[in-house]
């Protein structure tokens, strides 16, 4: 699927160096960022603690807005974690893209459909799991024939559609952003050497990067919102 990336095989499984390295970088950034933000917590918040608490409040707000109040605290950590991870992953490729020998090694992990579909697949598995855990298998299955048994195929298709759109929306936005970044960079460096194109490529690049930061934040927000909606849809009694 990836095309021209470096890959390696381990235990018979195919790994893509780009995804592994970018993923590790993002994991490290997320962990150390949050670890650093959460040091020296005090009753009266100052500086970085305010930033972290603002993030917590923000993602709590997203989750609480989408599901009944009694369930919200259980999923607030999921919302927080997904938001931070996807946000950092989206911005990562804007700040740092690294290639070697004509092949990419570092970029946004979320610009790869395999990664976003993995995320979306995990979320869908989670929603079905909590649906069964919350309502019991019988009621869970009954949800597919509501309000009419005739709607069963449409309900099943909706589940599949949710899975596809959740992952592909994120992938499409970030991949398109990075592709355009590369094309703008190509204006400045048409044949690997700096050209006069840099004069108009630079402001374009700045504009597009700013816009991509915005897109990345929006997509993280949308992903968390939809995750909450899907979970809420599965656990809430109608």
């Amino acid at each position: 699927m990836g095309g021209d990336a470096y890959t390696f095989k381990l235990f018979g499984l195919m790994f893509n160096w780009t995804n592994v390295l970018s993923g590790l970088a993002v994991f490290a950034i997320v962990f150390f960022l949050l670890f650093w933000l959460s040091r020296k917590l005090t009753m009266k918040p100052t500086g970085k603690q305010n930033v972290l608490e603002w993030f917590v409040d923000f993602t709590n707000g997203i989750v609480q807005g989408q599901m009944p109040a009694e369930f919200a605290p259980r999923y607030s950590f999921l919302g927080f974690f997904l938001f931070i991870f996807i946000f950092v992953a989206n911005q990562f490729g804007l700040i740092l893209q690294f290639g070697w020998g004509g092949h990419e090694l570092l970029r946004s992990p979320t610009a790869d459909p395999v990664i976003t579909m993995t995320l979306s697949f995990s979320i869908m598995v989670l929603t079905h799991f909590v649906g069964v855990a919350q309502k019991g298998i019988f009621k869970y299955l009954k949800g597919y024939v509501k309000p009419y048994a005739l709607l069963l195929p449409i309900n099943l298709f909706e589940e599949f559609g949710n899975f596809l759109t959740l992952g592909l929306r994120l992938f499409g936005n970030i991949y398109a952003g990075e592709l355009l970044m590369k094309m703008i960079a190509g204006l400045a460096l048409p044949d690997g050497h700096l050209s006069l194109g840099v004069i108009y490529a630079l402001p374009l690049s700045v504009l597009w990067q700013g816009f991509s930061v915005f897109i990345g934040a929006i997509q993280a927000y949308v992903f968390v919102t939809l995750t909450s909606v899907y979970i809420s849809h599965k656990i809430a009694e109608e």
């Binding site: 699927m1 990836g2 470096y6 195919m14 993923g23 395999v114 697949f121």
Partner: peptide, 14 residues
Amino acid sequence: SVLAESNSLYVGDM
């Protein structure tokens, strides 16, 4: 490392 076999799924990555 092998270059990507374009149509294989990176199950390892997942």
